[in-house]
């Protein structure tokens, strides 16, 4: 366990709107360790942006403590805060590039007060543009770039002062899936190459699954569930988390399609959802169920992902057999460490 690089303690953020107090963030504590890619997911209005903006004090918390890199952010003078912000890069959904500056100038902007010589700045800008593979666009203006390229420029700008932390607020939400994947790959690469700690806000679990090692799920200003990527994906406890995961693994869509079929379910023919983590693989299991309990399993949907180098499987199967045997088969699965539940077709799982 490292010292957290970001440590938020009991953060509240209140907004006053015509006499009424609205709590956008309530009693949130969050620890991010060096090298983490920490995903924060939640639906629109959950308070994700408000929470992460507290980290660099673009948003002042109403109460709580903010520690970044061992510094108490709430006790810094204005100048100290500006220097601290240089070590916390940030990228945004709409890129927020300066339209009247060239790409090179946009990237050079954070270095204006760095005291570096012009030559030094130029060299650094060149290096940053190489890092995001945009050297050829140095003299272009933002309106000549695609969305993905703009976000790369924004990343280069955010890295100009060699920050240890990068906050990404829905940085891929305005991009198509392929561009999203390339930006995520870049973030992952920076995480590994520069030991950059990343806080990644998103409403797409796909993105989290792709690169995060930890996840927090936010709802109504609170973190309702958090943990390692694998734990969250394999043992979600909150309905909202399951909702997000199902969207990511497309189980919901699969069940929607399965619903349309006439499965002729009865007490001897059940629709089951199996989830397994780690070394289990479906083939021996299905064979075992037949060999030991004469239960026939028909796979309707299967999905296997590798999360953090660990396989995570989802199966939807119709199991058929004598009801005693079915019960034993289900028990057997449970003993194998498989999460097994009957799918209730009248409501979503």
């Amino acid at each position: 366990m490292h010292e957290p690089i970001i440590n938020l303690k009991d953060i509240d953020v209140e907004f006053k709107q015509n006499q009424k107090v609205f709590k956008a963030v309530q009693q949130v504590s969050l620890q991010v360790e060096p090298g983490d890619i920490y995903g924060i997911v939640g639906y629109s209005g959950a308070g994700k942006s408000t929470l992460v903006r507290v980290i660099n004090r673009l948003q002042e918390p109403s109460s709580g403590e903010v520690w970044v890199n061992g510094q108490n952010m709430l006790q810094l003078s204005k100048l100290e805060l500006r220097n601290a912000r240089k070590k916390i890069g940030m990228i945004f959904q709409h890129f927020n590039l300066m339209n009247q500056r060239t790409i090179a100038d946009n990237v050079a902007f954070p270095l204006k007060s760095s005291g570096l010589s012009k030559d030094h700045i130029n060299q650094k800008v060149q290096r940053l543009l190489e890092l995001v593979e945009l050297s050829d666009k140095a003299q272009a203006y933002p309106n000549q770039l695609s969305g993905g390229q703009k976000q790369r420029v924004a990343i280069a700008r955010a890295l100009a002062n060699d920050p240890e932390i990068l906050i990404s607020d829905e940085a891929t939400s305005a991009l198509d899936p392929k561009t999203t994947a390339s930006i995520l790959a870049l973030l992952k690469n920076l995480n590994q190459k520069l030991q950059l700690t990343v806080v990644l806000i998103t409403h797409e679990m796909e993105a989290v699954k792709e690169i995060c090692n930890k996840v927090a799920v936010m709802e109504n200003g609170r973190i309702i569930e958090r943990g390692s990527l694998l734990d969250i994906f394999s043992q979600p406890t909150q309905a909202l988390t399951k909702d997000f995961i199902n969207t990511a693994t497309q189980i919901d869509q699969a069940i929607e399609k399965i619903k349309l079929q006439d499965l002729k379910l009865n007490p001897n023919r059940k629709l089951m959802h199996l989830e397994y983590v780690g070394q289990n693989t479906e083939a021996p299991l299905i064979t075992e169920l037949y060999r030991q309990f004469s239960v026939v399993s028909n796979i309707l949907y299967g999905n296997m992902e590798i999360l953090q180098a660990t396989p995570l499987g989802n199966l939807i199967v119709v199991m058929e057999g004598a009801s005693d045997n079915l019960a034993s088969a289900i028990n057997y699965c449970k003993n194998q460490g498989i999460l097994i539940n009957e799918v209730n077709l009248t409501e979503a799982i």
Binding site: N83, M90, N96, P110
Partner: peptide
């Protein structure tokens, strides 16, 4: 001027004058 651009400038530690 887009508020997001101002915010991005703040996030890199630019001073109000800058």
């Amino acid at each position: 001027v887009d508020g997001g651009i101002i915010e991005a400038a703040q996030s890199v530690g630019a001073s109000p004058m800058s």
